[in-house]
Amino acid sequence: MSDQKNSTHAKDTGHTWDDNLRELTNQPPRWWMISFYLSLAWVVVYFVLFPALPLANSYTKGILDWTQMKEFQGDLAELEKIRAPFETRIAKMPVSAILGDKELSNYSVQSAKVLFGDRCAPCHGNGGAGNPGFPVLADDDWLFGGKIEQIHQSIMNGRRGSMPGFATNSTPAEIDLLAQHVLALSEGGSNPVGRNLFVNKGCAGCHGMDGKGLEMMGSANLTDKIWRFSPVTKDSVKHTISHGVNNAMDKNTRNAVMPSFAQQLSDAEIKKLAVYVHQLGGGK
């Protein structure tokens, strides 16, 4: 068929190149023309249905009143509908019961992942891996307790470590001895002279006679392998003993403040985060 149309008898525009290249006036195929006119008609339909023309301060809205944002919000509402039964239960239940419920704790872990990334990971690291100066959340050593309720409290109200500096009332030698004792404690040993100082200087008042710390006060357990302030060197330990933690009198003091999230997050969000942190690997 095409051969016939390109024959010498076909009509042309009169333009000829290179002796025999002619521009023919054949019609495009009918199916092509039909789709062409249909697409033109669709343009009109589209302009009527959807936002199309920019105006001075606005744009033509289209009779469907469709916007990308509305579609997104519709999808989000659908998602919320799926989440609603979990969320309402979480809002009503105490956090320990949520942890006990396999379905809800699974949901919490999945759902709090993004929250953790946004709110917690900047200091505590992805997966609670910790950062210099910020505690690891994936281990089993907790300053303020690793029970689900205690974690919940920590997130809700924040925590503030506190330790006086001993530089003002101790000699460098004493501080050195104290540091030796503390380092020995974590290896399961002790320094007899340092131990006396530990009691006399009042360290035992917060860290306990055995140095295991008190969750009530958030004082660190000195007998385990986990250190609040890294790197773990004698100088670092001496610095902490000398200048204390959050000691307003000393500008070289250690900072150890966990903010409160009660204002920033909803009750349910905090519960979900508590479950998430508890499941990181160290919850008790």
């Binding site: 891996a129 994936a138 281990d139 050593d141 385990d224």
Partner: peptide, 18 residues
Amino acid sequence: HERQPLYVQQSDGSIQNK
């Protein structure tokens, strides 16, 4: 295997992987 953190030291010095 959990990548972040790859391992965690526990208070008794043991290493935990998730």
